[in-house]
């Protein structure tokens, strides 16, 4: 005994178009979600890194005086590192301003001390400045977290924007699916009428469409997610190959939670399609006797 033919005909061109639209929306949603996550992770990592860093600028002293000042700083509570930057380190630091040719001779430069503290350290930029000033140095200490605050705000805005894009894409997907289901229902009104007059209950007819669109949403969502996975892997691979990952760029990686997003998206698309289909069909059936 062969398997009975489905009461709804196999998919047609309209469903192929809907498949593409849902897949594209899911692709964008996954990419936006991964970007939002990556942005958050990047912001957290970067903030944690710069939170305990400061730079001390010394004037009117020589290298020896700078080394003594660094020793003084190392003696403060919670300071894990205080090193005077070498000439090479200064050149690397100022390369964006002076180019790869190095710092021109005769340019007056202050001596800099890079300081790192523990996260719970009570030593602040102000207390370092005070300590050095009391010891007779002309010094100014600046915490990196001051500069990081603005970047953190920018990353936070980017993250909120990415979440907004995800929400917008999800809402669009649901609206498109609902619209497409309504069109499919109109295109198959003959079948719905025959089933209705044959005594099929509303639930029975709605379930036919719900099953069809659940499968469509699931497949389209999976296609979109797999494509997003491929694109993400390509970005990660390219970044790793170039070996130039910037801490300020979203950290696109592929960890456990990224895979959760990739699995959940098709299920969410399927559920959205199923819900939209059920609602649309039930609404349409209520309009007839």
């Amino acid at each position: 005994m062969s398997k009975p033919t489905p009461l709804l005909p196999e998919s047609d061109a309209r469903e192929a178009a809907l498949f593409f639209v849902v897949a594209a929306l899911c692709f964008l949603a996954v990419l936006a979600t991964l970007t939002a996550r990556g942005t958050y992770t990047a912001a957290q990592a970067w903030s944690a890194q710069v939170e305990g860093e400061m730079t001390v600028r010394l004037s009117d002293t020589d290298r020896r005086g700078a080394d003594e000042a660094a020793s003084l700083i190392r003696g403060l509570d919670g300071v894990t590192r205080a090193d005077v930057l070498s000439h090479e380190e200064m050149e690397r630091l100022l390369e964006p301003s002076f180019g790869p040719g190095g710092i021109p001779a005769g340019v007056p430069l202050p001596l800099l001390i890079a300081v790192e503290t523990t996260p719970d350290s009570v030593t602040t930029a102000a207390s370092v400045t005070n300590t050095l000033t009391s010891a007779g140095y002309t010094a100014v200490a600046e915490s990196h977290s001051d500069y990081a605050a603005e970047a953190r705000r920018a990353l936070g805005t980017l993250r909120v924007a990415a979440i907004g894009v995800v929400v917008l894409l999800t809402a669009t997907a649901i609206a498109v699916i609902a619209f497409a289901t309504h069109a499919a229902l109109l295109a198959r009104k003959d079948i719905v009428d025959v089933l209705h007059l044959a005594g099929a209950e509303d639930r029975f007819i709605a379930q036919l469409f719900e099953r069809r669109f659940w499968t469509l949403g699931l497949k389209a969502g999976a296609a979109g997610s797999v494509f997003a996975l491929a694109v993400t892997a390509l970005i990660v691979f390219s970044a790793q190959s170039a070996g130039a990952q910037s801490q300020l760029l979203p950290q696109l990686s592929l960890d456990f939670w990224d895979f959760v997003i990739l699995v959940v998206t098709p299920i969410a698309a399927g559920l959205a399609a199923r819900t939209a289909a059920g609602g649309t069909v039930n609404h349409a059936l209520k309009a007839v006797l």
Partner: peptide
């Protein structure tokens, strides 16, 4: 009002499948 994608057998059986 026959369903084009169903065979003659399946068209006749439709009201019973609905049940």
């Amino acid at each position: 009002r026959l369903l084009d994608h169903l065979t003659a057998f399946e068209n006749v059986a439709l009201p019973l499948r609905v049940l």
